[in-house]
């Protein structure tokens, strides 16, 4: 019973991480119809910038988190401007932007390796100590991640439902021409979506940088997991994506308990492919 509880709590931690990553992918997808392969690399950049501000410059962790998040947002907007926008309206836009964002990922990863080197880095934790949830113990920092994730998701959801800017992103995602005809600046909406998504990735990176080591390739695994999440939940809606993230987190934690660390990723991917054979738009399938 105790191991099961511990497993569920670790599933919660994983699910929170995946939800933050996958919801960023979903925001860009629903607004622009672009799958951003550089999303994991943006997360990694957030962590490195945070480390530089917090540790190398000694300005403190909070400044680091803010700086890392902001830097990721700026890079996200730059990616949109130069690697995505030139291809709007192109017949093969989906495939082309997959390739250009893949190229952006390579540039960011290799760039980070050149700037920061291969030595492992880590951020201090926001708070030290441990927290007990349902009898299972996790670090206080992880508890902050767990608590923050749903708050952020709700904030993004409310933003897209209530605010004019947020609504304009949804409108652009559903009908660009009609959106332009009511005075929405479509390229600006695209930049906002990319910036928001990248900021989310950057923030996730700064939080993860205290739990895992910061390396140029630290974004790959979360990106791949986020891909599983969006395959599972579909990319169409924020709610389905976030829900799927937690489900995958729990499944992963349970799989680790049952079949061990080695077989778990294999089983996860197999599960995803089986899911897709029967539900081509994901379990909670929205529009493809």
């Amino acid at each position: 019973m105790e191991t099961l509880l511990a497993t569920l709590v670790s599933g919660l931690v994983l699910g929170s991480l995946y939800a933050l990553m996958a919801s960023g992918l979903s925001v860009v997808w629903t607004t622009l119809g672009v799958f951003n392969f550089a999303h994991g690399a943006l997360m990694m950049i957030g962590a490195f910038i945070a480390w530089t501000i917090s540790e190398a410059l000694g300005l403190g962790l909070i400044a680091g988190i803010a700086g890392g998040t902001a830097a990721a947002a700026v890079i996200g907007i730059v990616i949109e401007r130069f690697l995505v926008r030139p291809f709007y309206g192109s017949r093969a836009m989906l495939l082309i932007t997959v390739m250009t964002t893949l190229a952006a990922m390579i540039i960011l990863e290799k760039g980070a390796l050149m700037i920061w080197g291969a030595r492992l880095k880590q951020l201090p934790r926001l708070v030290e100590g441990e927290v007990s949830i349902l009898g299972a113990t996790i670090s206080a920092h992880e508890a902050i991640l767990v608590a923050l994730a749903p708050l952020l998701l709700i904030a993004i959801w409310q933003f897209t439902v209530r605010s004019a800017t947020g609504r304009s992103l949804r409108a652009v995602g559903q009908n660009q021409e009609s959106a332009a005809l009511i005075g929405i600046d479509v390229p600006v909406a695209f930049a906002i979506a990319f910036g928001l998504s990248a900021a989310l990735a950057g923030l996730t990176g700064t939080l993860l940088g205290s739990i895992r080591f910061i390396t140029p390739t630290m974004g790959v695994e979360p990106l791949v997991k986020a891909m599983i999440v969006v395959i599972f939940g579909g990319l169409g809606s924020l709610g389905a994506t976030a829900g799927a993230a937690y489900v995958i987190g729990f499944i992963e934690a349970l799989l680790i308990l049952w079949i061990g660390l080695y077989w778990t990723p294999f089983a996860l991917f197999l599960l995803m492919i089986v899911v897709l054979v029967f539900r081509p738009n994901g379990i909670f399938g929205g529009r493809g």
Binding site: A171, Q174, E177
Partner: peptide, 24 residues
């Protein structure tokens, strides 16, 4: 201002929401 041909506009948004947004 142009009112486009009777298409779906923003299919997954609610009517009132769309009207409010249109004063953008």
């Amino acid at each position: 201002v142009q009112s486009p041909q009777g298409n779906v506009l923003f299919g997954d948004m609610r009517v009132l929401e769309i009207l409010e947004l249109a004063a953008f």
